[in-house]
Computed example of a mutant assay.
Amino acid sequence: MSDERAERIADLIEPLRVRPGSTVRLARDFDPGYKARIRKKDGVELLSSGIELLADYQRRLAAQDTYGVLVCLQALDAGGKDGTIRHVMSGVNPQGVRVTGFKVPSAEELDHDYLWRYARHLPARGEIGIFNRSHYEEVLVVRVHPENLRRQKLPPAARDDEVWERRYREINDWERYLSDNGFKIVKLFLNLSKEEQRIRFLKRIDVPERNWKFSPADVRERARWDDYQRAFSRMLSATSTEWAPWYVVPADHKWFARICAAAVLAHTLIGIDPQYPRVGDETRRELAEVKRDLEREAPEGAAPDPYAKAGKKGKRSGGKG
């Protein structure tokens, strides 16, 4: 990985990063239509390059088996979370990636603390875990709809006016704990404009193949647009930290949102810089002995070692299998 390429990636995502300690107002600070003067026709090549880079680093991450990566995706309805996952992760080995979507909590989940159901799905070392919606629902949907807080069976003292500040602190502490233990956290908020959401809703209604993606509940949530914008702004202000910063990804242009998501994830993996494990002298001697045995088994007329003859190296697979 050239330093120049790493610098270009860092420069692209820097305007999206929420500076820890800053006070965010989405409408003022982040433009959903921003596209960094990149043309859409150049976007295909950029995304393809990013996907190739991610595939390489994911193989190394799995082989090193030391770090894990958790990607948290948040957005309003029609923000493009599913498409971002599908496109950005299209080149990686599925064995090394786990995607978890979080819906309405079950009765069992409500019988535990609010982080319990998320902790159960954290990635292992060597894996990339993706939360399609995440523990941040607990300070977004639950905040906009206080009736959800009442369903969580909290004692009265835990439902006072300080509940949201406590949750911000608890989430920050939890993410710090994960980071200290080798799990890097990538937090992406896909920032969609109200008008673009309206257009995407209409497309889901007008195109029969997309009808299944639309729910009347989506429109009811849209009526709470301003409430969600305030909740997102407070969340970004309170939980963008040095160890787990938020990136506000402009989502009105899907192709640019995917480039940005790939760039943020690549930036994280570049920072980890995972390496393939090196084998010791004893293992090398064992490999050389096994190689000689395999070469002696070659059929008459066949090359003893076709890879060595052709000067090729075998590809390494991602994942742990």
Rank of each mutant, 00 (worst) to 15 (best):
E4M: 10
V18N: 03
F30K: 04
Y34I: 06
Q58H: 11
Q58S: 02
R60D: 00
V71W: 01
L73A: 03
A75M: 06
G79M: 03
G80S: 02
R86Q: 04
H87V: 07
V88C: 13
N93G: 04
N93C: 12
G101K: 09
D111G: 14
L115H: 12
L115F: 14
L122F: 08
F131K: 09
V139S: 02
V139Q: 00
V142K: 03
A158G: 08
E162C: 10
E165W: 04
N172S: 01
N172Q: 03
D173N: 05
R176E: 11
Y177W: 13
L178Q: 06
K187H: 05
K194A: 09
E195G: 14
E196P: 11
E196C: 09
E196I: 13
I205L: 15
I205V: 14
D206P: 00
N211D: 01
V219K: 13
R224H: 15
W225P: 01
R230E: 02
R230S: 08
R234F: 10
A238L: 02
E242S: 11
A244K: 02
V249K: 06
R258Y: 04
I259S: 02
A262Y: 12
I272R: 02
E282N: 10
T283Y: 11
T283C: 09
V290F: 15
D293E: 14
E295C: 10
E295W: 02
A302F: 14
A303K: 12
P306D: 05
P306N: 10
K309D: 14
K315I: 04
G318K: 05
